[in-house]
């Protein structure tokens, strides 16, 4: 039994894949602690879907995968900004239109092009099929983002919380907004190959959401969401060895289970805790009413 459980660790490619996904999961967790605070989840989703046509084109032209994803992601972001500024439409409408259009273009290109590119691989990701130079790229992106966040998390927190005070304290909000989005896009690119374009949004939102439910302290939220991101990714990759399932789906399912647990049982903001609080408040009101 033990031997079977340890089997994945005997293959170097499995160990590499597990460590790589754990690293990316940790970085995504770190980013998610910030992302959920500003209502930017939809933008991140848009970015991830909008990379698909670029990836398709890059694959069929034999260009680096990241280059294609980056170009089409940037194009989508520019399109969203442009339409948002020049039209009366609300932001969610503009985002919805833009990312579905890009995504449709990507699907169309993948289905028409005769190349050997696998639609499934782009949409669902495949950790085991990552080429060595791609995984090197992913490690670089992850470490650079991690370093940036570790050094500047206090500045980012201030910029996200109160950008005017940040400005007064000599911290340029514009610079940190741009830097954060650059890190986010790069990390989404890296995570794309592990969990796929469809699910990448989950790994940059769910860990932060769980941690936010569980704590009021920012340091704790960061630690918790990094831990959730890293552990679910590691375990998800490990489990996928046995059941031969899609790694991304398993990781996201693990994360959503964490979320359900947090939603129900979180100490202060969980559903049970707030139900208890409501009951208590009602009880004291009843007692007060009886007293009268």
């Amino acid at each position: 039994m033990m031997q079977i459980l340890l089997e994945p660790f005997t293959y170097q490619y499995m160990v590499n894949a597990m460590l790589l996904t754990a690293l990316i999961g940790a970085v995504c967790g770190f980013l998610s602690a910030f992302l959920i605070l500003r209502g930017w989840a939809l933008i991140a989703d848009a970015l991830s879907h909008a990379t698909v046509p670029g990836v398709a084109l890059a694959y069929s032209l034999g260009l680096p995968f990241a280059l294609g994803a980056f170009v089409s992601g940037a194009l989508a972001a520019a399109a969203i900004l442009f339409i948002r500024q020049r039209s009366v439409l609300k932001e969610d409408v503009v985002i919805g239109i833009t990312f579905t259009s890009f995504f449709a273009a990507g699907l169309f290109m993948l289905s028409v092009s005769p190349s050997a590119v696998d639609i499934q691989q782009i949409l669902m990701g495949n950790v085991l099929a990552i080429a060595p130079q791609d995984s090197f790229q992913m490690v670089i992106i992850s470490i650079a983002t991690l370093a940036f966040l570790l050094v500047f998390w206090k500045e980012l927190r201030l910029v996200f919380f109160d950008h005017q005070h940040a400005w007064i304290a000599g911290i340029n909000p514009k610079f940190f907004h741009i830097a954060f989005f650059a890190c986010l896009s790069a990390t989404i690119l890296a995570a794309l190959q592990a969990v796929g374009a469809l699910l990448v949004i989950a790994v940059v939102v769910i860990p932060g959401a769980c941690a936010y439910l569980c704590s009021d302290k920012f340091e704790q939220i960061i630690k918790l969401s990094v831990a959730i991101g890293a552990s679910t990714s590691f375990v998800g990759c490990y489990v996928s060895y046995f059941i031969d399932g899609v790694t991304g789906a398993i990781i996201v399912l693990l994360q959503s289970s964490c979320f359900v647990i947090a939603l129900l049982f979180a100490p202060k903001k969980g559903l049970l805790a707030s139900a208890k609080q409501r009951k208590k408040a009602k009880l004291s009101m009843d007692i007060a009413a009886e007293g009268v």
Partner: peptide, 16 residues
């Protein structure tokens, strides 16, 4: 709803 404590906010006054 931002996850900061009272002392965190006051400490932000010292960032400069």
């Amino acid at each position: 709803d931002f996850p900061v404590l009272v002392e965190d906010v006051v400490m932000m006054g010292r960032y400069g």
